[in-house]
Amino acid sequence: MNPFNSLTPQSKLLGAVIMVVGIVVSAPHTAFSAGAVVLLVSALAIIAEARIGQMLLRSLVVLPVAGMLSLFYPLRFVAELTPAAFVTAYATYWQPMLALIVTPWLCVLVMMFLMEICTQEDILYAMECLHLPHILVLLLTFMFRYVDVMRYQLRASRRALVSRAPGLSARRQVMLYGNLAGSMLIRAYDQGERIHAAMLSRGYTGILPRLRSERMAVPDAIFLVCTIVFACGLLLYH
């Protein structure tokens, strides 16, 4: 019995954003508040039969950047430019540094959970319902549809390049890759014109039509209220 199935994608997206805002505004996190978030997300993941391993793995993507940026924090506490001073600063302020890494990680964990309980289509629909400008909806639809085609073409061109010119200098390689990207671009332009012709032929009015209509209802309201309550709880604890 997966209660998430009775929620609309709009409320799932909104809920995730509320959580993220709550986490950000109640930073820096203590071990307890961070733990509370992790526990909540894990519990929800179990209820939703989501792939917790996947979620955790994908959430690690934020660690390199967050880690690198957190390294800046103790620098202002370095009294003088000696190795000892650096060590002291980092040793003393490792906790705020950790807090700077934990906050983004918690946020990404929430978003990765969202990805587990929604398909790409769902999120796109949710964004459209929440009044994302239509041009962005159009762009996103095309991006999801055509990025695989582009990647396939890229791979095919790369293979052709490599098989015809195996031992090239770095400079020639760079030039060839520039040509590759350029030719892909021109192909994309031509394809864009053909796609547009196909769209016009099928009556395109400038808006992508959608059949789906899911209105928010009581389960969504309950879900959102709970999310807001939890977020406020985080804030008040802070």
Partner: peptide, 25 residues
């Protein structure tokens, strides 16, 4: 019109949405 390259005509994210495109418009 049915063009030569199907990728030019299948521009929605699912088959259902592509086929529904014309009637919806």
């Amino acid at each position: 019109l049915v063009f030569q390259d199907p990728d030019d005509q299948l521009f929605m994210t699912t088959v259902h949405d592509d086929i529904a495109f014309g009637p919806l418009n």
